[in-house]
Amino acid sequence: MLTANRRGHPDMTAGEIRLPAYGTDPGTAKAAERQAREARQDAERYARRGNMTMHAISLQAAKVLEAAAATHRIPAPKARG
């Protein structure tokens, strides 16, 4: 069961692994890219420590965040031919 602290954020000790959204607009590509990078770093740390469960969870989180960042990017203009 997840609990929330006074500010309404999930209690990280209750098993919630979502990364907090920093900055003024948490829905930006920049925020998603930063969170994906942090998740990959977490995955590397867990792998070095031998915690393969958290390694896999962090890798999955990084993949989801990278996909979110990709949806925020503006597509490149197509070349006219």
Score class of each variant (00 low, 15 high):
T3S: 11
T3G: 14
A4S: 11
G8V: 04
H9C: 02
P10D: 04
P10T: 09
D11Y: 02
D11V: 12
D11A: 12
A14C: 12
G15A: 01
G15H: 02
G15E: 00
E16Q: 12
I17S: 11
I17N: 08
R18I: 08
R18F: 08
L19P: 02
L19F: 08
P20D: 03
A21R: 01
G23C: 06
G23V: 08
T24G: 05
D25F: 04
P26A: 06
G27F: 11
G27P: 02
T28N: 03
A29K: 07
A31S: 08
A31C: 05
A32M: 12
A32Q: 03
R34Y: 09
R34V: 08
Q35A: 13
A36C: 06
A36R: 00
E38N: 06
E38F: 04
E38T: 10
A39Y: 01
R40G: 03
A43P: 00
Y46R: 11
Y46Q: 03
R48C: 02
N51R: 08
M52Y: 14
M52K: 10
M52N: 11
M52T: 15
T53L: 13
H55Y: 14
I57N: 11
Q60D: 14
A62P: 01
K63I: 09
K63H: 14
K63T: 14
L65S: 03
E66G: 03
E66A: 11
A69K: 00
A69R: 03
A70I: 00
A70Q: 10
T71G: 01
R73V: 03
I74T: 15
A76T: 13
A76M: 09
P77H: 13
P77R: 14
P77I: 09
K78M: 10
A79F: 07
